[in-house]
């Protein structure tokens, strides 16, 4: 243990991204779900648009079941959790069985929740497991480089989602600073020009509503995994 191959680097980075995707989208879903209780049909459309995922849903109810549990839906929570699992399962000796087990638990919980009538209630443990995963990673992932690469993935994904979902500037700035800090700690190749451009956008407090495409483009290209 001690060597990170290019293949593993890729898995570490995407493990960070997918766990964060599940975590942040689920937290957002919980807010939307509450609105959907009384909202007219199609109330999820704005959310789909912001995330740039196709609106393939036919009703609020069908959105809930498909977006959360449908394995054939590539944008669903379970599909993203499966991708996190696919990346984690090949990293047992880097992240340890203990850390890996939280990914397994999160996946099992989502799988067990299919068909539930109370998704917020049943999926709450997923958030707990993912938080435990990150907490545990700090304690059990021995190689600092592994932790930093995973966290770079996590912060890139979080920023991406925060920008898309129009989070406030303070939150975005905070996550951006974390990302910069992490990138500098890794030995990964990164695109200095994109990082500078994003920094410039942060400094002039860019209007994310109109400039988010540009920001996402820079963000997506910062880390050069391959």
């Amino acid at each position: 243990m001690g060597i990170i191959s290019l293949e593993k680097l890729d898995h570490l980075y995407w493990l960070g991204r997918y766990t964060e995707r599940v975590y942040t989208t689920l937290r957002n879903f919980f807010k939307i779900y509450d609105c959907l209780i009384e909202s007219p049909e199609g109330a999820y459309r704005d959310y789909c648009e912001r995330l740039n995922i196709p609106d393939i849903y036919t009703s609020n109810k069908q959105f809930v079941s498909s977006y959360l549990f449908e394995k054939e839906n590539p944008d669903s929570l379970i599909s993203n959790m499966n991708r996190a699992y696919d990346n984690a399962i090949v990293l047992r000796e880097e992240i340890s069985s203990t850390v890996l087990s939280y990914i397994q638990l999160a996946l099992d919980t989502i799988e067990a929740g299919a068909g539930t009538t109370a998704p917020v209630f049943d999926l709450q443990p997923v958030l707990d497991y993912l938080l435990a995963f990150w907490g545990c990673a700090d304690d059990y992932v021995e190689m600092e480089d592994c932790r930093n690469i995973m966290k770079c993935g996590k912060y890139v994904e979080r920023l991406d989602l925060y920008i898309r979902l129009n989070y406030n500037m303070k939150d975005i700035e905070k996550e951006f600073n974390k990302l910069v800090h992490r990138i500098q700690k890794t030995h990964m190749c990164y695109n200095m020009e994109y990082l500078d451009r994003l920094t410039e956008m942060m400094n002039r407090r860019a209007d994310w509503k109109t400039e988010y495409q540009e920001a996402l483009c820079y963000l997506g290209g910062i880390i050069e995994v391959r």
Binding site: M1, G2, I3, I4, S5, L6, E7, K8, L9, V90, R92, E93, S96, S97, H187, M188
Partner: peptide, 25 residues
């Protein structure tokens, strides 16, 4: 994990000058 060995796939390994090597990222 238990033996502190590197888990490698063929793409991580290569032969050079008649020795076997593991390549990191």
């Amino acid at each position: 994990e238990r033996t502190d060995s590197e888990l490698a796939m063929c793409t991580d390994l290569f032969v050079e000058d008649n020795y076997l090597y593991f390549r990191d990222y």
